[in-house]
């Protein structure tokens, strides 16, 4: 009996060793867990799941581990170009992705990754303006410029994100939000300096919270946060400013040191299925780049401008991409000056 048990254990551990796996590194609260279980059930591939809550942390970790340790990561737009340029990613074999055709072509082949060599869009979204419709009337706010109105003294919320806030100011000055030009960045700093008296709070944890508690009724926000606030009963509206909103895409990538490349492709392909994309979208609340999933979604979600912007809004806006370390360092210096009141 004992021998049998030992033999059984040995067999089990052998099986465990032979078990296929894939190691996924994703944003926190960015997937419906039932989808992961379903993947394992169907393919027999075990999913090791880890989460991060900022691009910077994810990047630093992969950089220190020289691209090893994870089979899939989910960087935002400008980190895809940065990581690809630094050789931290490997090309994705699209012949292994039978559902790649489900993706919205408008979100493919962007500047940050021409031809989607290294990245497959997972979710996308925007940074724009939101306001409390109980306090402000419709049409009162139509542009970034409106935030500079002195009547909002000490009342605005800005996201606590250097790139997004500078993107807004650069766009307002008529430049690209991805500008690396030190003169343009300096001008954006001057522009932001004149906005600072209006700023009450910086928040990138959960920008919807100060709106929900009634402390703020106007400011920058992310579309998914506004969607969530609406789900929680707030009368929050989302406006794409006429100068153009900030757009970003979070994409699946395969790090250069990934150990289970085949399984990574299988996982990505599974996530591209219309049904799976729909389940994730309804859980997460950001826009799904999966065109095939749209007809399956609730009309309220599909027609909500806070979730899906119009073609015009997309055309006016600009996607983030990498601006390089020098420009980033310069922005960080100006950012610290802004916050120090200088």
């Amino acid at each position: 009996m004992k021998k049998l048990l030992v033999a059984g254990l040995a067999l089990a551990s052998n099986l465990a060793l032979a078990q296929e796996k894939v190691v996924v590194y994703n944003w926190s609260e960015y997937i419906d867990e039932s989808v992961v279980e379903q993947f394992t059930k169907e393919t027999g591939i075990e999913v090791e799941y880890a989460t991060f809550d900022s691009n910077e942390v994810m990047y630093s970790k992969l950089k220190l581990q020289k691209g090893k340790g994870y089979d899939i990561a989910v960087p935002s737009t400008y980190y895809v170009s940065k990581m690809a340029r630094e050789g931290m990613l490997q090309p994705i074999d699209k012949t292994k992705l039978s559902h790649f055709g489900n993706l919205n072509v408008d979100l493919l082949d962007k500047d940050y990754d021409k031809g989607n060599q290294y990245s497959v869009p997972y979710f996308w979204g925007s940074t724009a303006i939101s306001y409390d419709a109980d306090t402000l009337s419709e049409g009162e706010i139509t542009s970034w410029k409106d935030l500079w109105d002195p009547k909002w003294k000490g009342q605005l919320l800005l996201t606590d994100d250097i790139r997004e806030v500078f993107h807004m100011a650069l766009t307002l000055n008529g430049h690209s939000g991805n500008s690396k030009n030190p003169e343009e960045i300096k001008q954006a700093y001057e522009t932001l300096k004149s906005l600072m008296p209006n700023v009450l709070v910086f928040n990138s944890e959960a920008p919807r919270e100060p709106f929900l508690s009634g402390d703020v009724s106007l400011g920058m926000n992310w579309n998914g946060e506004v969607y969530m606030a609406q789900q929680e009963g707030a009368n929050l509206k989302y406006v794409y400013p006429k100068e153009g909103a900030v757009f970003w895409v979070d994409s699946f990538v395969i790090p250069s040191g990934a150990a289970n490349i085949d399984n990574a492709h299988k996982f990505i392909d599974f996530m591209l299925r219309a049904e799976v994309a729909k389940t994730n979208a309804e859980y997460v609340g950001y826009a799904s780049p999966n065109s095939a999933a749209l007809p399956l979604m609730d009309e309220d979600v599909r027609k909500n401008p806070a979730v899906f912007p119009s073609q015009d809004d997309i055309a006016r806006g600009e996607f983030h991409h990498d601006i390089g370390d020098d420009a980033m360092k310069l922005m960080t210096e100006y950012w610290q000056k802004l916050k120090a009141g200088m």
């Binding site: 900022s54 910077e56 942390v57 630093s60 250097i162 370390d325 980033m328 360092k329 960080t332 210096e333 950012w335 610290q336």
Partner: peptide, 9 residues
Amino acid sequence: KNLFLVARD
């Protein structure tokens, strides 16, 4: 925090 994570200096 900004120096380490954002500026990566």
